[in-house]
Design a binder for these strands. Sequence first.
RNA 1: CGGGGUGUCGUAUAUCGGUAGUACGCUUGCUUUGGGAGCAAGAUGGCCCAGUUCGAUUCUGGGCACCCCGACCA
Length: 415
Amino acid sequence: MRQTHLFTKTRREAPKDEVSKNAQLLIRAGFVHKEMAGVYSYLQLGKRVLEKIEAIVRDEMDKIGGQEIRMATLHPSEPWKQTGAWDNVDVVFKIQSRTEKEYTVGQSEEEIVTPIAKEYISSYKDLPLVVYQIGQKYRDELRAKSGIMRGREFTMKDMYSFHDTQEDFDRFYALAKDAYLRVYDRIGLVAKATEASGGSFTKKLSYEFMVLTDAGEDDILYCDTCSYCVNVEVAESKENETCTRCNSGTLSRAKASEVGNIFDLGQKYTKDFDLTYQDANGEKKYPIMGCFGIGITRLMGVAVEKFADDKGLVWPESIAPFRVHLVELSSDNEEVKKEAAELYRELTEAGIEVLWDDRDARAGEKFADSDLFGIPLRIVVSEKTLAAGKFECVERASGHTSHKSISELIGHLTT
RNA sequence: CGGGGUGUCGUAUAUCGGUAGUACGCUUGCUUUGGGAGCAAGAUGGCCCAGUUCGAUUCUGGGCACCCCGACCA
């Protein structure tokens, strides 16, 4: 994409009322636009990042047997009243129509998915069933904060599973946990599977996936030796104590951001909606349900918080809006322009996503913007590189600079 | 929801009870061109509603919005 065609511009300063690093940088770089407290629009660059994250999540969920669907976001109030959430969950938005009919907007979708599943599940042969969606969620938070990391509207992947036995649930739960860890790993984040409370409808523990960052809202204890990690809200141990799992490591306390969670919902919802199946003996039973969430927009925020530096955003390659930022310093030099156009064409034909800074602007401004965008590889085309016969390549994250010919570049980027 | 703070061109800021200024951005022209250029000419602003006052962006009250701390958070 040509940068002269790119919708949005960078700005030198962040709005003074944005304090969080993610909001400041994403707004300065033109990735997002704030609509109101806790609600952001995602512009071209931001949307590209979200789509990259979604693609990774989709891939991993499909691999463990998830089927993607898209549920309504405007919900009737009845199922929410049926489960008690209408009166007991205070983050549920309540909307009234002009005829005084009541609705809500989805903040989680058990109330929608369970009645849907009820229409199609009648036999143990229909189980297990795993469906998921990626979509907008709405929560009536009293206080939105931390930029895109805790909003009233956000994007979440929510997956729901239905099982005939606890064993089958446990089997899938373990699969899902591994899939989750792969998602974070592919984004370059280290997430700890953290024991936490199961929420208001179950006494069982759940796993929250926590990325260590001071921008997070949760406090966790983690072992420096094994993988044990626990949310302090349910922890029975304390900081500096010996880990109770491996009996050798020491527990440390840290701030973390929750980027996913997986719950055993038991039969809460299948009973609420009287969803039953017949087992092999013809007996009616309630399936066991699981709920598995990943915060897509929050993951984007956490990636900003973890990787950005004093010059701007830094995206891991797997979720970067573009792979290459092609910066031409043409100074009205037609040869340079031609060379940049040719390189753009070749890279694009090789399947590499390129943002081409074809603006008539000075080098300083172009480099500053390039740093701010955080695209992994910058390739400079100028009179200098033309004379040298090789392009200047700078890795955004490391600052490592090299000089490559077109064929070397394409070889490097396509292997 | 409790407490605190802030509302001035698109953004960041200054000043002032009496013509609202600066920087960046934007428009036009010329020059410049490897780390946010220079000159010249432009366009764009007082959150809303009351009150006080000859006169309010400024003072007072109310509202709204946003931010921070806390509480809350399937």
